[in-house]
Design a protein around this nucleic acid. Structure first.
Lengths: 338, 338
DNA sequence: TGCAACTATCGAAGCGTTTCGATTGCGTTT
DNA sequence: AAACGCAATCGAAACGCTTCGATAGTTGCA
């Protein structure tokens, strides 16, 4: 394995010159740089990661703490893990994966052994053990999600409240006065994942502000539970003319099946919006208006903020990514009578 | 941040004594060890990861190359990633996540910069670009899955052929002579993922050996495609009395729905086995006999083999994990007439 | 009593970088 | 022609650990 010494020897310069040529931190004559680059090429030289970590001030590794439990919806989770990995690589950072059983001890370990420069926190719960650990550690960290007490933290997330308000606003503007919401399973809310309640509360608040009637159901994954949820909404809100889906793909698909089976046309009989889903919604029949949860948006920003923190402290903040709205024709004015 | 010097000073010994006390590589007086441990505790000392990598011969990090593409079934993928992470931590190894867009270049990068001690390869395709790279690199590596040309590689995987044969054998023993197979979507087979064809071929081979009639369908994820697949099987194999499911959770669920909807009782009218699924199958109604794909089995073994390779070269091999069979009462002798 | 064989400990030499002063050689300015 | 500034390069000191080869100090045995 070629070292910087070998490169220096082949190029006929000192090792510091090689280092500066490669880092660009001091000016180097064009001809020298060329010789060095040739030597690097010829020897297949790659700087030794360990030596770099030791001598330099950074490791170019982020820890990604991504717990995974029974309620986790794997596709969304994967999408975020992936987005963090890709965003990190774009800044020449690698990603070290920390899992559930090591959540807090692992953070302590990688931070205090100086294995990572910073931490990206995924799947943040309202009361999250990792918050306390990270506060103490003082290692640069970015939360993707917002814990109840975000004091002193740097957080990024989709603005779920605004997303819910946006859904309400679009439907209200179309004339709807009774809107149902199908959320995640009760377990998700119970576990304290931070975003489902934020969406739900935003939904109720925006609806109340516009004097709109609401109903809310939290089905499990299975078909019969979804069926019951739809029934429940119609019972609780007999004049319901619009539905907001804030749930997993399988549940959304089941809802669409049930509507079809009951002869309810979208959007003629019922307007439907899919909100904050991290999966594609254009394969539904019909395609649904969507307020997407774009993993790359939050993750890219999170990585940027982490990089900034590696360079030096930044002000704590909660950055909420504004929701977007994709029109696909699944909302219409309510039918005059049903 | 406390260094080994600080520990040595506080304990009143030299740094080499501290190092030996912590690594256990030379004998240290009990009293000295105690003083050192106290100092470590008191200072909250953690060895610097970079220094360790540089001075020692290993980094205690494995690269996990886990591509993710359109055909990837996220829950299974997650299960494997997680299992690798957990098995690695059990041996004091961390896991660096490499994604699709960096598949080969990332491997080269982390291996030749000596950032990782070894590589765990997930989601192996029959013809996988990573195989060639890894052969050249000479870095310890373990494939979870078996590429077409496994010459010189260390591979671990569930024995999918044996699993298929086991399914056939159980059904044949119960008296079935016409067995259908519902596989993954055509895209999965086309992409060259290694295990679906292995299962399929094992299925046909075992059936042929016992003179059993077969039919095979590859539905997409959506309900209508699954419905068509079931129809296709019954058309191709009118006397079909048993069904083997080797597909995603949603498809298996859809199949069960369709059977119910057609008034086909399991196992009275149709015996069903769920084969090589990495998800729980006991929530289906009725619960299905299952040959599970246990991520932890393969991953634990893979990590062990990686560790062995870090210590020194081992013989190339393909280790196939024998399938297990979970009885849940979803197979019965075929009905005398239909 | 002397010497071999341990045991417990120490000192120092790396490991491969980065980075902080030099130092050298030129073209400019006065 | 002396003095200066700047660009290009070098040498050496860290960084924090592991590990090899000494060196005392003890024990055991002849």
């Amino acid at each position: 394995m070629a070292s910087i010494h070998d490169v220096a020897r082949v190029a006929g310069v000192s090792i510091s010159t090689v280092s500066y040529a490669l880092s660009g931190k001091r000016s180097i004559a064009e001809s020298t740089r060329l010789r060095i680059n040739n030597a690097v090429e010829q020897l297949g030289y790659r700087p030794n990661a360990g030596a770099r970590m030791l001598a330099g001030t950074r490791t170019n590794i982020f820890a990604l703490t991504a717990p995974f439990h029974a309620e986790t919806y794997a596709p969304a989770h994967m999408a975020f893990v992936l987005a963090v990995a890709q965003a990190s690589r774009a800044h020449d950072y690698d990603v070290l994966l920390l899992t559930q059983d090591e959540a807090t001890s692992g953070l302590r370990r990688v931070a205090s052994s100086r294995l990572v420069d910073g931490i990206i926190v995924l799947d943040v719960a309202a009361d999250d053990d990792r918050v306390g650990v990270i506060r103490k550690l003082g290692t640069p960290a970015v939360f993707i999600g917002v814990p109840r007490d975000a004091e002193g933290l740097v957080c990024v997330d989709l603005d779920f409240e605004a997303a819910a308000a946006l859904a309400i606003s679009r439907l209200a503007d179309a004339g709807h006065r009774a809107i149902g919401l199908i959320g995640h399973s009760p377990g998700v809310y119970a576990r304290g994942s931070n975003f489902p309640p934020r969406f739900r509360d935003g939904f109720f608040r925006a609806a109340a502000a516009r004097g709109i009637g609401t109903a809310f159901a939290m089905p499990e994954r299975d078909g019969s539970s979804v069926r019951a949820a739809v029934d429940e909404l119609y019972r609780a809100l007999p004049g319901m003319t619009a539905l907001v889906l804030h749930c997993e793909e399988a549940v959304q698909a089941a809802v669409m099946d049930i509507l079809r089976e009951r002869g309810l046309r979208v959007p003629e009989d019922l307007s439907v919006i899919s909100a904050c889903a991290s999966f594609e919604t254009d394969h539904f029949e019909p395609a649904l208006d969507t307020i997407p949860l774009v993993a790359a948006d939050s993750c890219t920003r999170a990585v940027e903020l982490a990089i900034e923190q590696v360079a030096g402290p930044i002000a704590p903040r909660v950055e909420l990514v504004p929701p977007r709205y994709l029109e696909r024709g699944s909302i219409a004015p309510p039918a005059p009578l049903r």
